[in-house]
Simulated scan of single mutants.
Amino acid sequence: MFGLTFPFTFYNVYKAYKDKTGKMLSFLEAMRPLVSTLTLFTLMIHWSYISSIDIVQSQPRLYYWTVGTAFSHIACHLIIAQMSSTRCELINQSLLPLFTIVALVQFLTLNDVEVYLLWAYCIYITLKHVLFGIGVVKEMCEHFNIQAFSIPKVSVQ
């Protein structure tokens, strides 16, 4: 993934500066959205290496669901920040429990407790992501003064 996506990302940033088509942010400010994503993948990969029970082999579906949902949650926050022309947060708040879990795994031999921690973080990030989506839909409906999941009847003349 890194070999395919990051070179294009850096190329697009370079091209936007060269053609003056972007927002002309500093390099560090332009790379700010990558911090949460890189932090997520660093923590999850590190967890997989230090796991006392080889968490990826023992719970692959749960592990990948958690990584995918956490990535999707971060990406949705970045999309909303981009759409609203606001500065994205440096570290997404949903990564804080993951920092704690990885620190516990690093310094303690938890064995099967790791599975419960993975379940806990999976449930946490899934609920957080669903609730964030519901909040965004509600906010957009209020802004556009429409009802979600309803199609107004159009009179045919």
Results as ranks from 00 to 15, higher is better:
3 G>W: 12
4 L>D: 15
6 F>E: 14
7 P>Q: 11
8 F>S: 15
9 T>A: 13
10 F>K: 08
12 N>W: 08
16 A>R: 05
20 K>T: 03
21 T>H: 03
25 L>N: 03
27 F>P: 00
33 P>M: 04
34 L>E: 07
34 L>P: 00
41 F>H: 12
41 F>S: 04
44 M>G: 01
45 I>R: 11
46 H>P: 04
48 S>Q: 06
49 Y>E: 12
52 S>N: 09
60 P>T: 09
65 W>T: 06
65 W>F: 10
66 T>W: 04
69 T>L: 05
69 T>M: 11
77 H>L: 09
79 I>Q: 11
81 A>R: 05
83 M>F: 10
85 S>D: 15
90 L>T: 14
91 I>H: 05
92 N>F: 02
93 Q>C: 13
96 L>H: 10
97 P>T: 01
97 P>F: 02
100 T>Q: 07
104 L>M: 13
106 Q>M: 08
109 T>Q: 13
114 E>D: 06
115 V>H: 10
117 L>Q: 03
117 L>C: 05
118 L>G: 03
119 W>P: 02
123 I>W: 06
127 L>H: 13
131 L>M: 15
132 F>Y: 15
134 I>V: 15
136 V>C: 11
136 V>F: 09
139 E>W: 11
145 N>Y: 03
147 Q>W: 05
149 F>N: 08
149 F>G: 05
150 S>V: 08
152 P>K: 02
153 K>F: 09
157 Q>L: 12
